[in-house]
Write a protein that binds this DNA or RNA. Structure first.
Lengths: 157, 157
DNA sequence: ATCACTATGCTTAGGTC
DNA sequence: AGACCTAAGCATAGTGA
């Protein structure tokens, strides 16, 4: 028997769930890569799972970081504006603090430590992470290689 | 003629690219939702595009924020550990600062302003954002509704 | 468990309105 | 432009080694 419709609910069987995850993870990554290329947009996917020792990040730690920090940077003024009046005082303090941080960053643009701290506290801060996505890259590559191998074997039949 | 293989490169035609983006965005979102449900993992996708006024975030601003901040929280010690020796001083300062922030957070757990600032500076800070994903939700829902409608119409033929 | 396989369902390019 | 349709191509559940 082959395949019925997928029941879109938690797969209780442990190994089946793990297998599905492995397959779909690679699918999701592929799709993310594709939409990025086809439309030249910035996109990233982040997955936490008990099956990977590190979070899976796509298309890369670096690009994801960029996307995330862009998201955060764009979002902050919005957020600040939308805060309710009751929190007016908090908002003002917040704005001042953010200004200070921004100011400080400008002033010390060449001061490495400030930059590092700024990045860690506000803009990102995972430049030096272990590169978890390399595993995925090599996974995809080895998958591709297997495909090619198979193809060649058939041609030689 | 129907569909050839997709050339995985930037689609130069403007409206074609836009259409592809709209279609694939919804696909990507669906897949993200599915893997999340099937495997009960935490996953999010973020897309920046010139076609959406706001970044598209999935499964939700709130969950994405959680995923992102979890990512950042997990990553920091890793990063700190992996920093090269040349930057030992920076690292120490950084660790101390992070400790202070953490400490401060604990001490002032019930002090709203500190929490808000902490979150903005370190843990997240987009609680009060405009909810961009509502648009997507309603898009998916209305799509689903149309499908159901169509189905019912056929049954009544 | 992980790999390759393949039948099936799903996604989506290309077309029409 | 966007909604709808259809078939080609792709993703992947289930299977066997």
């Amino acid at each position: 028997m082959t395949r019925g419709k997928v029941n879109l609910a938690y797969i209780s069987n442990d190994s089946a769930r793990r297998t599905t995850f492995r397959k779909r993870k690679s699918g999701l990554i592929k799709k993310t890569t594709e939409i990025t290329k086809l439309c030249e947009i910035e996109a990233c996917a982040i997955m936490f799972s008990p099956y990977d020792p590190e979070p899976v990040v796509w298309p890369s730690q670096l690009r994801a970081q960029h996307t995330i920090s862009r998201y955060r940077r764009m979002s902050l003024p919005e957020q600040t504006k939308k805060m309710v009046d009751q929190e007016g005082f908090t908002r003002q303090m917040l704005e001042k603090t953010m200004e200070k941080v921004t100011q400080k960053r400008k002033e010390n643009q060449h001061n490495q430590m400030t930059q590092v701290m700024y990045q860690c506290l506000y803009g990102g801060g995972f430049e030096n992470l272990t590169i978890g996505d390399l595993n995925n890259t090599s996974g995809l590559i080895s998958q591709k290689l297997r495909e090619i191998e198979r193809f060649l074997q058939r041609r030689h039949h």
